[in-house]
Design a protein around this nucleic acid. Sequence first.
DNA 1: GTCTATAGATGGATAGAC
DNA 2: GTCTATCCATCTATAGAC
Lengths: 216, 216
Amino acid sequence: MTDPAAPIEETNEAATKAAVFCAAERLFALHGFQNVSVRDITAEAGVNLASVNYHFGSKDALLFEIFRRRTAELNRERARMLHEANDRHAGKPPVREILEALFAPPLRWGSVNSDRRISVQFIIRSRSEGTEEMREALTSDVSHLARFADALIAARPDLPRETVYWRLHFCLGMVHNNRFAEFDRLHVLSAGLTRESDTEGLLKRMLDFAEAGFLA
Amino acid sequence: MTDPAAPIEETNEAATKAAVFCAAERLFALHGFQNVSVRDITAEAGVNLASVNYHFGSKDALLFEIFRRRTAELNRERARMLHEANDRHAGKPPVREILEALFAPPLRWGSVNSDRRISVQFIIRSRSEGTEEMREALTSDVSHLARFADALIAARPDLPRETVYWRLHFCLGMVHNNRFAEFDRLHVLSAGLTRESDTEGLLKRMLDFAEAGFLA
DNA sequence: GTCTATAGATGGATAGAC
DNA sequence: GTCTATCCATCTATAGAC
């Protein structure tokens, strides 16, 4: 900003921070949280070792910042789609469209050609490997999921609420199982029959399965 | 064995090994694989620090031995139930009974009053946090799952095989999502409506949901 | 076989030069 | 703000006494 003739390197600090952020997210998503050291991150980002502590405070703080940003983005997209479904159906969308708002964002972001593929794997991993702080945030912040639960209860007022909650739990299990390793395993099991790359096809399969389960 | 008057301490070595095994399984299941040190394990078991390396070779070898034994036990029980379902239906059991053989063992073993509750959490954790060796074993050893896939294909010959494999994948996702943290989250979301302790009720809910999804 | 002491390696965090 | 050098804690694994 001080030199209008060279605006490209005005954000050198921000660039370093972003490089650390992206390298960390990538390595964490691929190799797990505990298996990646600060040294790995700074080497991958091409910055010095002290950058993580300078820009983020600590390794755990960096981890938590990635987690918070990505989950916020995902929840926002889900809320947006749910809102659109509401608009289309006068505030009472059918089960299938509610589930689509729940399934589509992580599925599409996680498709092989998406630049958010890494982010989705990071989020999925944080659910099982996260720090105490992250798990606490996941457990306590259910406001995002509550909107989906309410929508499903409104769509199926004939079902006991308890039943709706459990079925939402089953649907989340379907989503969380979409990890690299599980796709690979399924690929081996089916002798190459299942193609992970067909994102929209998989979304339709998930919706068919879950919708039928909900209408039982 | 050398002193017939004191047969109780004849298996002192085996007792130490078993104590290490149980303490390790318990700590790994509760706190994650990377967050538990050999020191934690030996302290919990009340044995000396060198026991792990003496009896198992290394920390990773101990981890892998727990993993192998528990998954073998689980797969054996599943195979047994599938076999019984085959006997009941002349080799062609319906979808619901196949899925029951897949769901019931981990669910019952994981119930709050079960002495295998820890083992189930260990197995679930190994799926996402396991070492490269464990993940390789999971990916390559699909023979156990292949029997379930074949049974489901036989039960629904009208469906494309690809569809059956994907739906089996969804069912496995439902099973793997039965972790402590996820139950807690659901409990918060439903304001205490969902009761994890009702194992048979949960099994029925899972079967209702998955069977309907399969018959779609 | 059991245990203590320690080697050997790695990690997170930080002080201080520039 | 950036980077190097380093501190200090922690871990796995093992040698060697008993």
